[in-house]
Simulated assay, not measured.
Amino acid sequence: MSESIAASSAAPATPPGGGRAAAVLAVIWDLGLPLVAYYALHLLGASDWVALLAATATATGRLVWVALRTRQVTWFAAVMMMVFGLGLALGFLSGDPRFLLVKDSFGTAGAGLVHLISLAGARPFALAAVQTWKPAQAAEFGDLYRTVPETRRLFRLSGLVWGVGLIAEAVLRLPVIYLVPVDVAVGLSALMMAVFVAVILTWNLLYIARVRTRSPHAWVGHTADRRQ
């Protein structure tokens, strides 16, 4: 479940050469490698701890390899590393049927934490996501982020809201998991996650639309002079 949160709020670094096919391939590598490692080992009879260890190591290896090759952080791989790594740490607390729900909550918090950590770098998570899904305009988005204050504010505020929102959802979900019966907690946990993501996504789309209306020079496609 937490892996779906990662997919909805994350994206890898735009691969050299651009192109939507290359971007999709990067997503497959970032998401697919740790998932294949995790489920393949499960099918072979490995314990959950061993499978989580392999998935965490695979995601970490992908993150390091891309960073060395492109000098960019593939944030999607970072999210996967955080999700499986937290699951691995919580694996020592297994035995409680509520553990899987707690693991999902920590995974969601991990995705939010990656959003916040990325704000300390030159290329925040929100910007990386847009550049990945719009590879033909990736360079222009990067230029706007470096030179236009409104663009920087847009991506940084979006990343901040995603980060704080995902962490808040994870924290609020914890008492639900332990205060109601397990069968009820499963449904409420999924509902809370869906509602939070929908609310944040709706706000983000409305915010981008407002910025594009008030400051069209802050978005790709505007040809007028840009503010420095």
Rank of each mutant, 00 (worst) to 15 (best):
D48N: 13
L31F: 13
G165N: 02
F76G: 00
A126Q: 11
A170D: 03
G110D: 09
I117D: 03
S47G: 05
T147E: 08
P15E: 08
A6G: 15
R156V: 04
H42K: 12
T223N: 13
W203A: 09
A209E: 13
R173K: 15
H42A: 13
Q72I: 07
R69C: 09
G159T: 00
A40M: 14
D225W: 09
G91V: 07
W49N: 11
A89K: 02
T60V: 15
T151S: 11
S8R: 07
L119E: 03
T151K: 06
V114P: 01
P135D: 10
T58K: 05
W65T: 13
L127M: 02
R62L: 12
W219I: 11
Q228H: 15
F125S: 04
R152C: 05
L86N: 10
E169R: 08
T108N: 12
K103E: 14
R71E: 11
V197Y: 14
I5V: 14
D143H: 13
G110Y: 02
A185G: 07
T132W: 01
G159N: 01
G107K: 05
R71N: 08
F92S: 08
L33Y: 14
K103C: 10
S9E: 07
F155V: 02
A23S: 15
G17Y: 05
A77T: 03
V182K: 13
L33F: 15
M81R: 08
P34I: 11
L41T: 07
G110E: 06
A67I: 04
R98C: 06
L90P: 05
F155W: 06
G95H: 15
Q72C: 14
G19A: 11
G107A: 10
D143S: 10
L113Q: 04
L41F: 13
R20S: 14
E3N: 09
R173D: 10
L113F: 14
P135S: 11
A120I: 09
G95P: 14
F76W: 09
L63G: 03
A198P: 06
V161A: 12
Y145W: 12
G91Q: 06
R71W: 03
R227K: 06
A198M: 12
T223D: 15
T213E: 15
G85T: 02
G85Y: 01
L90F: 08
F92E: 08
A190D: 08
A51I: 07
E150P: 02
I28G: 00
L88F: 15
M81I: 00
R69W: 13
L86Q: 08
R123P: 00
F106T: 01
R214Y: 04
Q131P: 04
A10Y: 00
A54E: 03
D183C: 11
F92I: 11
R123F: 07
F155N: 00
A7S: 08
W219F: 10
P97M: 07
A78K: 01
A111R: 05
G87D: 01
T108E: 08
T108Y: 07
A170R: 00
I28M: 06
R146W: 01
R156T: 12
I167P: 12
S8N: 03
L31I: 10
S47M: 02
F99S: 04
P16K: 10
W162T: 01
L101A: 04
G91N: 09
H217D: 10
R123K: 10
W65V: 13
M81W: 04
A194P: 05
T58G: 02
A55Q: 01
T132H: 02
L174K: 00
P12R: 02
I177F: 11
A198H: 12
V197K: 10
